[in-house]
Amino acid sequence: MQPILTLKQWKKKISEWLENEYSFLPEKVKKKYLTTGVGHAGGCMFPNASEAQLTAVCRFFLWAFTIDDSFEFSTVDELQIICRKALAYLQGTVANTDEPLYQHLPTLREELLQLGSEEWLNRFNTSLAIYFDGIQQEIPFRKNLVFPSWDQFISIREKAVNVYPLVNFAELITGTVLPDEVVAHPVLQELARLTCRILSWSNDYFSAHMEKGNDVLNIVLMMEHLEQCSMEEAYKKAVAFHDQDLARYCYLTEHLPDFGTYAAGVNAYVQNLSLMIHGYLYWTLTLTKRYSVGTTGHPSGELKDGKLSVNV
């Protein structure tokens, strides 16, 4: 079922979230998030989502963008506090909050439980914890502009890109919550990892021009550093590595094991993963200004120091 709201209505909804629940953000940042196209991102990546499902997706997107952009140069201690509090709200151990940074999370929890189950939400929360582990591991490399080893980079980037929760959403919007033992199958686990990597390499490709000299955790910059090559050549090497992962992903999707009574649910889930990958590229190439240089692009300039008028 397609979303009932028009694009104009989605933009209005997200604008209201920004004005009310995200009033702590600088006005310039709120304007940039409007040009990011959060509603477009959700719709492109999850075209099969209902209005209720897409509302939960976009609510999470906006919160995740805020965390990622605001605290990428934060401290491990601060990130641990944010992770602990966020999971407490999503797990329901804390019901309500007056803390601006977490105002959306109790609502998000209720929406997700209506759409899925406690079992699914536990997996989602585990994915979010993986993300926080990844961005904590990024900090010493990013702050000191020191390149990690290749193996360190791959491990950290897979987690810090924050795609595992989106992989969970790809399952949720099928309308069938798969049992833990099905989701834990090695083939589905590898597809989840490859989805994270493919979206990560795509993100890095589009953002390398902004991150050069300011960051090291980008596959293009890693290639340039490790191979001692030009940026132009590094882009080509990054694409080649992306294409290897994509080839493996395609092979696995075409040779899925027999999941018996869960076969239809698994097939729908995997189809949604593929739509998510395609949708991300379409959103990036045609609908968002997040990777543009200038006043409508990424809010990194306003949030680089991670200093907001809000406590973590």
Rank of each mutant, 00 (worst) to 15 (best):
I277R: 02
P26I: 09
E99A: 11
G134R: 00
H225M: 06
Y291Q: 02
L221M: 11
N162A: 14
T36L: 11
V177K: 06
A49R: 09
E171L: 10
P299E: 07
N168Q: 08
D180V: 14
Q137S: 10
K11W: 00
W63R: 07
M45R: 06
F141A: 01
P179F: 09
N272T: 15
P3M: 01
N214W: 10
Q2Y: 03
E119C: 14
A192E: 12
Y251H: 15
S127P: 02
H225A: 13
T97E: 07
Y205D: 02
K236W: 01
E16S: 15
R197P: 06
N162T: 02
T126Q: 08
A264T: 14
V76F: 10
E118D: 13
M223I: 04
W63P: 07
L172F: 03
P179Y: 10
Q189Y: 01
D204R: 14
P106C: 01
D69V: 02
E190Y: 06
E224S: 03
E72Q: 09
T36G: 04
A208M: 02
K11D: 15
Q91N: 07
N203F: 07
F65S: 07
P186S: 09
L221N: 11
E110R: 15
A129I: 03
H225W: 05
V312G: 07
L256N: 15
E227K: 14
Y22T: 06
Y164R: 10
K30A: 03
H255L: 09
A263V: 05
S202D: 15
E118V: 13
L7M: 06
S207C: 03
Q271C: 08
L5N: 02
T97W: 12
I277Q: 01
N48S: 13
E181L: 14
S15F: 04
R197E: 08
E99F: 02
V312W: 06
G297C: 04
A268T: 05
S70Q: 01
L287N: 03
C58T: 13
H255I: 05
A56Q: 04
N20T: 14
F132W: 03
L256D: 07
V177Y: 02
F124G: 03
K289S: 15
T93D: 08
E16Y: 07
G175K: 15
L105A: 00
W10M: 09
V76N: 05
Y131M: 06
I14K: 04
G37L: 00
T126E: 15
S309G: 05
V38P: 07
Y33Q: 09
Y282N: 14
E118T: 10
E111Y: 11
Y131T: 13
F65D: 04
R197T: 12
L18K: 07
L90K: 13
G297F: 11
G134C: 00
E119P: 03
L226V: 13
L145I: 09
